[in-house]
Amino acid sequence: MATSDEKLADLHRPSEILDTLKRLDFGVAIAVPDSWLGEILVQIEAEPKIKLIRATHEEEALAIACGSRLGGVRTAMFVQNAGLLSMGAGMVSLAQRYQFPLLMLVSYRGTVDDPVFYHVPKGRVTEPVLKGIGLSYAIADRHRPLGPQVERAATYAEEASCPFALLLSQEDVQW
């Protein structure tokens, strides 16, 4: 009998993200890539039911996502945590002020699992900044399947009418 860890090892975690978005009828994804996000975006681009928009800046991506959700389409964002740091004004004065439910799937760089010298400064401040601007978030638990965690994050965003950031590791999101 397989252990739960062995079962988990069978799951391709980035596929869980994509499968969950499809099952929950997400129609638009807005992205600013990094090296972990590159391939999952290619996969999304090939999905006929999800429109991928590649934005030039994360705050711009946030506003596009607000517009798409305003238009009645469930919308996800794919950005690096650097993008969370650079979208602060739009987050508080647009997304939070108008209460847009958005699922933000975030590559969490610069943690102890990703000690790249230039990512570390971003990793160190990410959670304090999220707390400071009042952005609800969770760190994906690598010991549990990812699909249900993505669904709960999406549900939280809708039930609370706010953006919600799920912080993802390399294993979670790099295809």
Binding site: A63, G67, S68, L70, G71, S93, L94
Partner: peptide, 22 residues
């Protein structure tokens, strides 16, 4: 009408998202 109150610079991208959704 969707009125911005602040969020300077973000009306264009919001309208883009809206146009895609509608």
């Amino acid at each position: 009408n969707f009125y911005f109150e602040d969020a300077m610079g973000l009306a264009l991208p919001l309208a883009l998202g809206l146009a895609v959704a509608q």
